[in-house]
Simulated scan of single mutants.
Amino acid sequence: MPERNIDFGKFGARGSKGSDAVARQLDELAGGIATPVTAKRGLLARLHYLTRSGKSRQAAREAGLTVTDRTLKAWSEGKRSPTKANLERIDQAYRVVRRQNVARHLLARLNREGRGTRVEIHPLNQSQVPRPLQRVVEYRTMNIRRWDKIVSSWAAGDHQALDDTWTADVLPDLGSQWGQYEYVTNVGFAA
């Protein structure tokens, strides 16, 4: 694919992949429990979210939380505490299940019945790149009307599909210099 960065950061440019910035923004829009899993309140809220129905429990198991119902009950009642590894599994399972639950609603908000959502792309940081090697890159905005592949890849946790969709389907709409926006400092949008 033309314009793809092969050796990003070689001359001191800083930033992250645009698809990673999109995933962070989608996570922020999905919201969720703000209290950390290490606090009792955060742990109990996540356990309640993951065990409130049979469908939630099944989704949590598929997301990697493979403890018995007896253990979950002991954690919920405060009789036992999960290990650090299990706390990480609980938090990860919560994020996966939360993504799956809000994806359909978020997709409808972003597509806005075909009108799409305006996206702001902030270029990479070139402050550490020597002057003669700096590119002229500027802040860009665009309207994305089709979010289906982006949101489904994000909800499934498929980073490669999200990156492929972002770089092959979305960025070329910026014109001939779209490769300069593969790495960015931020991608912002609201729904």
Rank of each mutant, 00 (worst) to 15 (best):
R4C: 10
D173A: 12
K40C: 07
Y94Q: 13
L124P: 06
P2H: 01
Q25E: 10
L72N: 06
R146M: 02
V137A: 08
R14L: 07
I90H: 07
G15D: 12
D169C: 06
V137R: 10
S56F: 01
S153T: 08
D169L: 10
I6A: 15
A155S: 14
P82H: 04
Y181H: 07
E77W: 03
A108F: 04
Q100N: 15
L44S: 14
D148K: 05
W166V: 13
G9E: 07
I150N: 03
T35G: 06
P36H: 02
G31W: 02
A191P: 15
Q128E: 15
L43Y: 07
T68A: 05
V67R: 03
L106C: 02
D91L: 05
I33K: 02
R145P: 03
G31S: 14
Y94T: 12
I121W: 02
N186P: 03
D163T: 13
L107T: 11
N86A: 02
W178C: 14
N101T: 15
I144L: 13
T71S: 09
D20W: 09
H122A: 10
Y49R: 06
D169N: 09
R109I: 04
T185Q: 14
R70T: 05
V129W: 05
P2L: 07
A93Q: 08
R14P: 07
L43E: 12
K40L: 07
V97E: 11
S19D: 09
T167Q: 02
V37G: 03
L44Q: 15
D163I: 00
A108W: 02
R115A: 10
P82I: 05
V184P: 11
A85N: 13
L174T: 11
T185G: 05
P123S: 11
P132L: 01
R70W: 01
R99I: 06
R145I: 04
A190D: 13
Q100T: 13
D27T: 14
G42F: 08
S176V: 07
G18S: 11
